[in-house]
Amino acid sequence: MLIDLHVHSDNSPCSCMSVAEILAEARSMGLDGVCVTDHDSLAVLAQIEEGFQPDGLLLLVGMEYSTPQGDYLVYGDVRSLPSGMDAYGLFSAIKERDCAVVAAHPFRAWRPSDIACVTCENVAAIEVRNGRNSLRDDRLAEKHAAINGLPRVAGSDAHCIHELGCFPTRFTVPVTSSSDLVRALKNGQCEPGEAFPLAVGL
């Protein structure tokens, strides 16, 4: 399954992409699923129904959680997460919930996950390809994943429709729910998918 794990709707102030646009376009781009990960917000839940859509697209909701130690992608039972935690509080809260944390763009200049926090004890995986990263950023993330034995994922970090689906993650097991996604991430049953043709030249 190909799932874009890092997508922002216009519930994030930095995105111009509506949920309706995401739903209208994602399946035709070849995606099996999309996870909306707005910044510190679950407002999208008032607009959509999680799960399989009429066209077969799996739509899930996570969050890009901001901490003083950078940003982290959180999947699973995000509704019960307290707000305003630092990274270590987030990692502790995750252990009590059906959740997985992924280090978001850890080598990028803007809001990177603090690399000191990106260990197999704290995160399920590391984002080694990101639609807004430089090649250098991605190579450093790949190196860190290899050294620390961390599963690797990709994410488009889409803020507009032409970015959607450019950097999907391939899952080697079926994902039909948030719990499936969490389990697959924790078990390392994932890898960066091939960049879609749309991503060439970004």
Rank of each mutant, 00 (worst) to 15 (best):
L81F: 01
P68E: 05
R132T: 13
V153T: 12
C120E: 11
L58Y: 09
A109F: 13
T119L: 11
V123A: 11
D77K: 10
N133T: 09
R139V: 10
P168T: 03
E64R: 13
G89R: 04
N133L: 04
D77L: 09
G165W: 10
H144L: 15
S83N: 05
F91W: 14
A141K: 11
A158E: 11
E64A: 13
M63H: 00
P151N: 05
I115H: 00
R111Q: 10
A141P: 12
W110N: 06
V101Y: 06
A87M: 01
T172V: 15
D98S: 13
I115P: 02
C120T: 11
E163F: 02
P82W: 08
S113D: 00
P151L: 03
T169E: 00
G76P: 02
P112I: 07
L73S: 10
V118W: 12
G149F: 10
R97P: 07
G155T: 09
L59C: 10
M85P: 08
L60T: 05
I126G: 02
V78P: 05
N122C: 08
C99D: 01
G84Q: 08
N148Q: 03
H144N: 00
R79Y: 00
A145I: 04
Y88K: 09
H144R: 12
V101S: 13
C160Q: 09
K95T: 14
L135P: 02
C99Y: 04
P151D: 04
A100K: 07
N122D: 06
L135H: 11
G89P: 07
I147T: 07
E163V: 03
R136A: 15
K95I: 00
I126L: 05
A109I: 14
D114S: 03
